[in-house]
Computed example of a mutant assay.
Amino acid sequence: MALLSTVPVDGSPAAVDGLVTALRHALAGGPAVLPVGPGESGVAGDPGEGAAVVIATSGSTGAAKHVVLSAGALQASAQATAERLGGPARWLLALPAHHVAGVQVVVRSLLAGTPPVVQDLRAGFRPEAFAAATRELGPDRRCTSLVPTQLGRILDSGGAALDALRGYSAVLVGGAALAPQLHERALAAGIAVVTTYGMSETAGGCVYDGVPLGGVRVELEEGGRIRLGGPTLADGYLGDSGLTAAAFADGWFRTGDLGRWRAGRLEVLGRADDMIVTGGEKVAPAAVETVLTAQDGVTAACVVGVPDPEWGQVVAAAVVVDGSLDGALAERLRAAVRAALGRTAVPRVLRAVPRIPLRGIGKPDRMATARLITADAGPAPIDTASHPRNG
């Protein structure tokens, strides 16, 4: 039986040092590593020969899965990243080390021959701490990986943290969709943003700025579901042959995401399970969110379907806005969605919230957002012209 070593990581540099040592041994053929965050526990099982890392992950339902990644998959991903970004670099770890994106920062660092500099995350992500950690990198070529929330905080804070971020050769941004307005702000500020798409089952990001990494294959099934292939694929799920067989077949991983090709680049439209069906018409929440967050005054948005006795579901949006969500702003947002996506996609319910509920490494929690919207006892702003039956 192959061994599985549980390594607790609490966000401290000392804990990451232990993970670095364990990963170095795992990549050389030693026991596979299961990094666990605060409050998490280990798991028993045989990851199989060649396994280097087991990553605990959960979907929107919260059902736990444990993804088994081989040393070959991790190293192929790290090598492809180095090739895409122009060569090895010194990396700053500013993400939780028990997520695949954090693990890959460590693997890329080991590949480059230099351990990562680690930002202490025990008190949460702080832009000033990011600036201090960046100074430890020295003059070497530098890269880091962030989620959109972290990028937004640095841009909002300005000062030393923003100056530090400008000094990176590449800033990988993934874990959740990057809103167009935030992306444009970052580029305008001189940040070398590289958007990434991938998941634990692909050893992290495998499509950068819509273009697959070297060796990675992308196909779209009929209906738009994304399939990914290549050397970065996981071996499957620990202790679940049925789930493995359903997701991995013939050298492909069948994702739960929908996408399309646009100008030769992959555009991810969101989860197939998140699709809203209203009056028999389908609406992709991610497409609506893209339009909403591109509007002046909107800093974040999460779109969900909420039950409706007539339509089955209606499109509902929680938005974070500068100031208040008055009637003029609500109509401007609806008009923007109507112009870009048609009447069916227009949110019939708009709610202003102080922040979008998040889960995991920074993905929007759609279930929590739906509860937040439906718990509001006030009258829902209704766009009576938003559905095809009305026009």
Rank of each mutant, 00 (worst) to 15 (best):
V9Y: 11
D10Y: 06
G11W: 05
L23R: 12
A28P: 03
G30M: 08
G37N: 12
G42H: 08
V43C: 05
A52P: 11
V53Y: 03
V54G: 09
A56Q: 14
G59P: 05
G62M: 12
A63K: 13
L69V: 13
Q79C: 02
R84D: 05
R84N: 00
L85Y: 10
R90I: 02
A94P: 07
S109Y: 12
V118P: 02
Q119W: 09
Q119H: 08
A123I: 02
A123N: 12
A123E: 15
F125I: 10
D140Q: 14
C143R: 15
S145A: 15
L146D: 06
P148T: 13
S169A: 15
L172Y: 11
L178N: 13
Q181K: 11
I191E: 03
A192E: 14
V193T: 08
G198S: 04
M199R: 06
S200T: 15
S200R: 10
A203H: 05
C206L: 04
C206W: 01
V207N: 04
V211N: 02
L220H: 01
E221W: 00
G224V: 00
L233T: 10
D235T: 15
G242N: 05
A249P: 00
G251L: 06
L258D: 07
G264N: 10
E267Q: 15
G270M: 03
G270L: 03
I276E: 08
G280V: 04
E281H: 13
A284K: 09
V288N: 09
L292Q: 10
A294M: 05
A300W: 02
C302W: 00
C302R: 01
C302P: 01
V306E: 08
A316W: 02
V319C: 10
L329V: 03
A340T: 10
L341K: 09
R343M: 00
T344M: 01
P347G: 01
R348G: 10
L358H: 07
G360I: 13
G362T: 10
A375S: 15
G378M: 01
A380N: 00
I382R: 13
I382H: 09
A385M: 02
S386N: 04
H387S: 05
R389E: 11
G391H: 14
G391C: 00
